[in-house]
Design a protein around this nucleic acid. Structure first.
Ligand SMILES: NC(=O)c1ccc[n+]([C@@H]2O[C@H](COP(=O)([O-])OP(=O)(O)OC[C@H]3O[C@@H](n4cnc5c(N)ncnc54)[C@H](O)[C@@H]3O)[C@@H](O)[C@H]2O)c1
Ligand SMILES: NC(=O)c1ccc[n+]([C@@H]2O[C@H](COP(=O)([O-])OP(=O)(O)OC[C@H]3O[C@@H](n4cnc5c(N)ncnc54)[C@H](O)[C@@H]3O)[C@@H](O)[C@H]2O)c1
Lengths: 245, 245
DNA sequence: CCGAGCTTGTGATCGAATTCTCGAAGTCTG
DNA sequence: CAGACTTCGAGAATTCGATCACAAGCTCGG
């Protein structure tokens, strides 16, 4: 069967596909040939209905009464995510974080390949990290072009983030992952995601506080609302953030 | 004064408070005493209505016709997020990433303080990173207790993540930030958030693919990049994921 | 003191995402 | 081959989040 599914995968589903992918990779290492939505849900920390709904956006790849063929599903997801070939990635800013990223092995095993390292600091240029050496910023255009780099990672200080993003886009990158704690805007047609350590910790902090101090702070002493039953209500879920266009 | 607001801040709002906080810190460095929802929205990459709605959950801290008092709002948000004092954080796993995190300055400037470093590798124990030295895992209980650590960061390989999480929880930590690409479960009452580089890149990859190849067929080969001229519709938004309990 | 001009706060609306449910479709056993 | 059992797929219901739209409240000029 060819496909003919309504090619519209909800945003929320897209963010979960990598989780399923990861879990499926684990399963593939065992000898199990198929997996049920329920088991996959357990592994990924989801619930079965959501898994099925998500996977159904890709097409009907399951078999009722049996489950999903692991290899086949892996193939479908990797095709959907574009992991059938490695994406060359450029890392900009080879400080603490940038170097850790550059040396990170898991990078290459998940569909990506560090293809260029750049830094504005002349002292850093020429330095070898992993099996690449750090290049100066003015080599960006050339590197992006010659190495077909579409994804750029920003690991510079916050105040350089926007400039670096602009440079990456100007050079031709169309996807950016920003680790700097700064808001960056990019033109429509370029994807941007961000990872911010402080944000994550602050979210944890919020719920941590709630748990030990259910009221707001100032006075009060109501709340307690809700059904709640077992003491486990003020708990968090999770998210990150990003943006496009 | 007079609170009694329905103390229920939506999950989605909680994840954005840190962004507002960050933007407000920037504004506070200028001489502006107040800021409008519109300007704050610009800075944080949101829209004004959302900002107002979010802030309204904290209480009515704005002044119509004027905007929000920067200092006051900062204070309120930091109180809500529990940033009025520094949270001691333990980092487990001092490899590439763990060391970068331990040396990360921005940590301390955002309401957190690295209070303990732990690693299972005897070769790593004793090593100095920043101004702490790495401790063995069996010191975890003592460190968490003595240093009032509530938040643990996991930077170990994926296969150790669950064990480390269990150890952290057993020691008394109630919030965990997991950098390892593995699904970890924790008991109710403990918050868990995760950051996964590969997931982020894969999401970017998905949209990157969509842009250059609207259908969805395979045939890898090489990138047919050639810059797609500004297509501008199949674009992504963003999110991350996490989970609780 | 009044009216013009901003900007907030929030009810109402819209839409997206999650969860519930259950019929459909397959396997397996005897 | 029938019947019991498993598990998917997807409509319906529900929850949650984003956006709209506008009255209310504040400042300031005159
Ligand atoms: N270190 C961490 O664990 C960590 C964690 C989360 C977020 N971050 C964020 O990641 C970023 C990098 O952190 P770090 O600790 O590696 O900082 P760092 O100061 O060690 O490294 C920054 C690097 O960026 C380079 N740089 C500066 N301006 C540049 C420019 N305009 N173009 C290209 N390169 C430039 C510098 O030369 C330096 O090598 C920061 O924004 C930080 O907030 C770091
Ligand atoms: N390096 C990166 O840039 C990067 C980026 C994203 C995610 N990650 C993830 O972060 C984790 C750490 O990455 P890394 O590159 O630092 O790896 P690494 O191998 O350099 O370091 C792992 C550290 O964890 C320690 N460790 C192993 N088992 C342990 C245990 N049971 N208890 C305590 N400590 C233990 C090891 O001794 C080692 O010091 C990995 O899961 C990786 O996938 C790394």
């Amino acid at each position: 069967m060819a496909d003919s599914a309504p090619r519209t995968i909800p945003e929320a589903t897209v963010t979960r596909l990598p989780l399923y992918y990861r879990s499926l990779l684990q399963v593939a290492e065992t000898d199990l040939a198929t997996i049920s939505s329920e088991r996959l849900a357990d592994m990924a920390g989801m619930n079965a209905a959501k898994v099925r709904k998500d996977l159904s956006y890709l097409g009907s790849y399951g078999t009722r009464g049996v489950g999903y063929d692991v290899e086949y599903l892996l193939h479908q997801i990797s095709r959907e995510l574009g992991l059938t070939h490695d994406w060359p990635v450029a890392i900009v800013g080879l400080g603490n974080l940038g170097q850790a990223l550059a040396k990170y092995a898991g990078f290459s095993t998940r569909g990506f390949k560090v293809a260029a390292l750049l830094d504005a600091d002349p002292a850093k240029v020429g330095m070898a990290v992993g099996d690449l050496s750090v290049e100066p910023m003015d080599a960006l255009d050339r590197l992006v072009r010659d190495r077909s780099i579409a994804i750029g990672v920003i690991a510079t200080p916050a105040d350089a983030a926007q400039d670096v993003a602009d440079a990456l886009v100007a050079a031709g990158a169309r996807s950016i992952l920003n680790f700097a704690p700064a808001h960056v805007t990019v033109e429509p047609g370029v994807s941007l995601r961000k990872v911010d350590l402080a944000t994550e910790l602050q979210i944890l902090s919020f719920y941590q506080l709630r748990r030990s101090n259910p009221s707001g702070d100032t006075t009060s002493g109501d709340t307690t609302s809700g059904d709640t039953t077992s003491g486990d209500e003020a708990m968090p879920p999770q998210v990150s953030s990003a943006q496009v266009s």
